[in-house]
Write a protein that binds this DNA or RNA. Structure first.
Lengths: 124, 124
DNA sequence: CTTGAACTTGACGTTCGCGGAAGGTTCTAG
DNA sequence: CTAGAACCTTCCGCGAACGTCAAGTTCAAG
């Protein structure tokens, strides 16, 4: 499977795949011609990478525990490191959601105070 | 009040103030020499802008809220337009919160699934 | 064999919210 | 009057995660 199909299978672009390789997240083998060759395991890994990035982790985060993404069991001190990184991101997400929610409330009350007639009629 | 004091009062840097002006968030008057002159209203507005940006909004978002931030009374048909714009922005905020919340859930479930032992021990 | 789609590397462009330096003008204190 | 702090504009840079163009190679179909 070459880069175009692999990218499509994982919901990414060829450019992204080359970038991930450049960043050390992936090491597809090469055909004699030089073309990258992706297997099913690579595609699964790409999907995991995409999920993690979508979930707010950075490339560096993913790289820091790339070896564990292979499906191998994580245990010992390594899994603790992974857990700490992930939990830190989770806490950041929570904080951001909280700030946005507070902002939303303030904004809503601001709008309500200033445009209450409009607000009453437009919002059911 | 010149840019240094205004920036300090709002907890920002002169560079940030110039940038906000460049982005159309602020229009301080100018002294004959060319120096920017900030009033109390400008400083209050700067504080609000900083809060909004800290909460995760973009410059473009704040710019679209600019009418409301002025504290000026909107009236007639304009208030309806402003109200509609504001409500649309509010809906966008809700969508943003929803997306972030979904991301949070995905990350949390992934942590739970892959690192459940760590998760159990680290999270009380 | 030929054409064109897909691939290669390399390098530069993009967005966001500024930071910082260059080079020049103005303000303020002594 | 003079030193130096603060201000002005203009431009370059950063970091993340790619997009995009360029010029050349290779693959698949007719």
């Amino acid at each position: 499977m070459r880069i175009g199909d692999a990218a499509a299978s994982a919901g990414l672009t060829p450019r992204a795949l080359r970038y991930y390789e450049e960043e050390g997240l992936l090491r597809p083998r090469r055909a004699p011609s030089g073309h990258r060759e992706y297997g099913e395991a690579d595609v699964r890994r790409l999907r995991v990478i995409r999920e993690l990035l979508d979930a707010g982790l950075t490339i560096a985060d993913v790289r820091s525990f790339a070896h564990i993404l292979d499906g191998e069991s994580a245990h010992g001190t390594e899994s603790c490191a992974v857990g700490r990184v992930s939990l830190r991101r989770l806490a950041e997400l929570d904080a951001r959601i909280a700030r946005l929610t507070m902002l939303r409330e303030r904004l809503a009350s601001r709008i309500e105070a200033r445009f209450d007639t409009v607000f009453d009629t437009v919002v059911p």
